[in-house]
Structure formats: C-alpha cells, structure tokens
C-alpha cells in the first residue's frame, strides 16, 4: 500500500513575528518528502491540540523572539501530559547557545540556528522520528 510519510506540525511560537524562516523551512521539508501542517502563530496549548488532531510525528517550533526558554519546554510538557511522548519536538531560530542545554534537558530533541542547512534538519528528523504508521 502507500509508503510511510512523516507528518510535521510547524508553528511560530507565540507572538514572534518573523514568518519567512518557518515558511521557507516548511516548504523545504515538503521538498524532502514530508507533509507539513503550518499553523501560523500559536501558543503551546493550541500547538499541542493541533499536533494531536493531525497525528503529527514531529512538532517544529520557530522563534526569533526570545520566548523559547519558557514556551518551548511547555510544548513538550503538554505533549507528555496528553500521552504523546513519542512526538519529536525540534526548535529553530535565534536561540543563544547557552540556552540550548536547558532546552534539550526539557526534552527538545534539537535546536537549529539560523545557518542550518535543510539536510541537517531532515537528517535529524529521520534519525529521531518514531516509526511511522
């Protein structure tokens, strides 16, 4: 039957206004064969609801707005509360190096800076995503 397809829910975190990066990355992930549901700007509760409804394998959070430290871990925590432990959460944007260990400790699989090549993101997803289907 059909092959397995990775489904990614992408969101701009909270109030952050910079949408070009997240949209460009979404389109590049599409080019890499993934199905990307783009949510626009959302807060953690709504992101998690959407991830559940969409059956997402991956949640991608984008922020250049400095809210990563609070809102990122909140998404992971809410996913866990809803029993969605196996959904992989990644972040991208302008995030200071020294905040990354704390984000990873909170369960975010990887944090990508502005100069990341798309191949790197794709490889990371493929290596860490749950077995689909």
């Amino acid at each position: 039957m059909e092959r397995k397809v990775v489904k990614v829910v992408m969101a701009k975190l909270g109030l952050d206004i910079h949408w070009r990066g997240v949209v460009a990355v979404s389109r590049l992930l599409r080019d890499a064969g993934m199905e990307v549901v783009y949510l626009g700007n959302q807060f953690p509760e709504a992101i998690v609801n959407a991830a559940i409804q969409e059956g997402a394998d991956v949640v991608g959070l984008s922020t250049l707005g400095g809210n990563h430290a609070v809102l990122g871990p909140k998404v992971v925590q809410l996913l866990r509360e809803k029993g969605m432990d196996d959904v992989m959460v990644i972040m991208g944007g302008v995030i200071p190096e020294e905040d990354i260990p704390a984000l990873k400790a909170a369960g975010i699989v990887e944090v990508f800076g502005p100069e990341t090549a798309i191949d790197e993101i794709v490889a990371c997803i493929n290596a860490n995503v749950r077995q689909v289907g």
């Binding site: 909270g14 707005g65 400095g66 809210n67």
Partner: peptide, 11 residues
Amino acid sequence: DPEAEGNVGQC
C-alpha cells in the same frame, strides 16, 4: 497578558 509569557523585555 497570558500571550506575553516568555517575551516580556526580550528583544
């Protein structure tokens, strides 16, 4: 405001 969480005084 709840929307402001994590962003106050940043950037």
